[in-house]
Design a protein around this nucleic acid. Structure first.
Length: 424
RNA sequence: GGAGAGAUGCCAGAGUGGUUGAAUGGGACGGUCUCGAAAACCGUUAUCCGCCUCAGGCGGAUCCAGGGUUCGAAUCCCUGUCUCUCCGCCA
């Protein structure tokens, strides 16, 4: 969430920014928060004054008691005007102002960075980079949902039998390919200086709030009611939450972590023809990179991270494009997001395989993730993350783009990991 | 699942209801000493909120969380959460 300070001191910039998101309630909410904040502070001041007085009185009684002047103490006790009701009601309204503040803050999305274009939907995203030749396939080329049947490597029917739709079973070379990709991605990240983390794949409610999935995306996560745990929709949640309520020192920065986890998404109400096959799943594998940095470094690091993702795609010999998302297409928490899309030849579509974002202080504020800067001042850090990479659509693109009459060719870089060169 | 113990500062660990934001030890940082280091000694070692005459000052809050008793709660009472130990079960 945004900091009160930002909302108070840079109101116009916030409103300007939120306009780029096409966020309609901006004016109302910002006005509410500022009004509420004013009342909150007034209440706080009144309450503090009142408490200061009663603290002083109590202290006096204590001193008298200690000095053995019990009579004076009890007469003072009698003389003290009891403002308890007043304190109580002030405390209640303070709590209410704080609750309201929190409630409103949760509703305001992050302010897009200066270079983020305004826009309503994916139509308004800007292609900032393109790589590789879009392959032309022979006329009887198949989409991946046919290929996986032909070579018997991924089985949706079996998944339905044991779990449900959107939970595929990977078999034989299909399973092996998954493992190869995961290892390849982890190794590449390791070489780029990321520390490997294997986190739990369930998280508690506090973690959901920490990275901003809650309360915004409540319905998107699988929830284990009995234990109050959420299945993670991305490794971002556990890995970033490792740093909830943490104060780092400058020499620990930047933090660079990478983790592989399965990811679970309910994807309620988002099914249709365009999400066939591997395009959208309830459970999928992803390697995620996460960085935590000083504010002044985060944009350099954003570039570093997206270049890392790009290098993976290039090594996999996949044609891709890099998009700068417009305000309206960006996630709630993000200040700036680059999407990487690979071209899926048989579907003739671009598929999103990675999203690299800088959240600036938006998550850190919820997480209370800070560091002490050179001047000894507490400062919120910046958090960033990116998929490096999400597997299913990479697999879809690899299968479709590399299909030949003899079988599906495995990119050279993966062969040491798969142990085979061809799926046939 | 059954039984018990506990939750205090960066860590360990005290704490009779009254100047306790909190003893003591350790660590870390700064200093003295030293050619340098170790040792020793001295000092520093929270965070959030509010107000003001805003490089500073003052006040409030915080000893798991939320209630309660009291002039006054880390300390007493209730509720919740979490952790640990033992037994059972088990990869």
């Amino acid at each position: 969430m945004l900091t009160l300070q930002t909302l108070r001191e840079q109101t116009d910039l916030v409103l300007e920014g939120l306009k780029k998101r096409n966020f309609k309630d901006a004016e109302t909410l910002v006005q509410q928060i500022i009004e509420n904040d004013k009342l909150r502070r007034e209440t706080q001041t009144t309450l503090d004054t009142l408490k200061a007085k009663s603290n002083a009185d109590s202290k006096k009684i204590g001193e008298l008691m200690k000095a053995g002047k019990a009579d004076e103490a009890s007469s003072l006790r009698a003389a003290i005007a009891l403002d308890k009701d007043k304190v109580k009601s002030l405390e209640e309204s303070l709590t209410e102002f704080e609750r309201k503040q929190q409630e409103i803050l949760y509703k305001i999305p992050n302010v897009p960075a200066a270079i983020v274009p305004a826009g309503k939907s994916a139509e308004d995203n800007i292609t900032v980079h393109e790589y590789g030749q879009v392959p032309t396939l022979h006329t009887d080329a198949l989409p991946h949902w046919e290929l996986i049947k032909k070579y018997d490597i991924i089985d949706f029917e079996l998944g339905i039998k044991i779990a449900g739709a959107g939970f595929p079973v990977y078999k034989g070379k299909g399973a092996r390919l998954q493992r190869a990709l995961i290892n390849f991605f982890l190794n590449e990240a390791g070489q780029a200086g990321y520390k490997e983390i294997q986190p739990p794949i369930v998280v508690n409610e506090a973690s959901g709030y920490g990275t901003g999935q809650l309360p915004d995306k409540e319905g998107q996560m699988y929830f284990v009611n009995e234990d109050g745990l959420y299945l993670i929709p991305t490794a971002e949640v556990p890995i970033t939450n490792l740093y909830r309520d943490v104060i780092l020192t400058e020499d620990e920065l930047p933090v660079k972590n990478v983790g592989y986890t399965p990811c679970f998404r309910r994807e309620a109400g988002s099914w249709g023809a365009h999400v066939r096959g591997l395009n959208r799943l309830h459970q999928f594998d992803k390697v995620e990179i996460v960085q935590i940095s000083r504010p002044e470094d985060s944009y350099r690091i954003l570039d570093e991270m997206s270049l890392h993702v790009q290098s993976l795609l290039e090594k996999l010999e996949l044609p891709y494009r890099k998009l700068l998302l417009c305000g309206g297409d960006m996630g709630f928490n993000s200040a700036i997001t680059y999407d990487m899309e690979v071209f899926s030849a048989a579907q003739q579509r671009w598929l999103e395989v990675s999203s690299v974002s800088n959240f600036e202080t938006f998550q850190a504020n919820r997480l209370k993730l800070r560091y002490k800067n050179k001047d000894g001042k507490m400062q919120l850090l910046h958090t960033l993350n990116g998929s490096a990479l999400a597997l299913p659509r990479i697999v879809a693109a690899l299968l479709e783009n590399n299909q030949t009459k003899e079988g599906i060719k495995i990119p050279k870089v993966l062969v040491p990991y798969t142990g085979f060169e061809m799926i046939d």
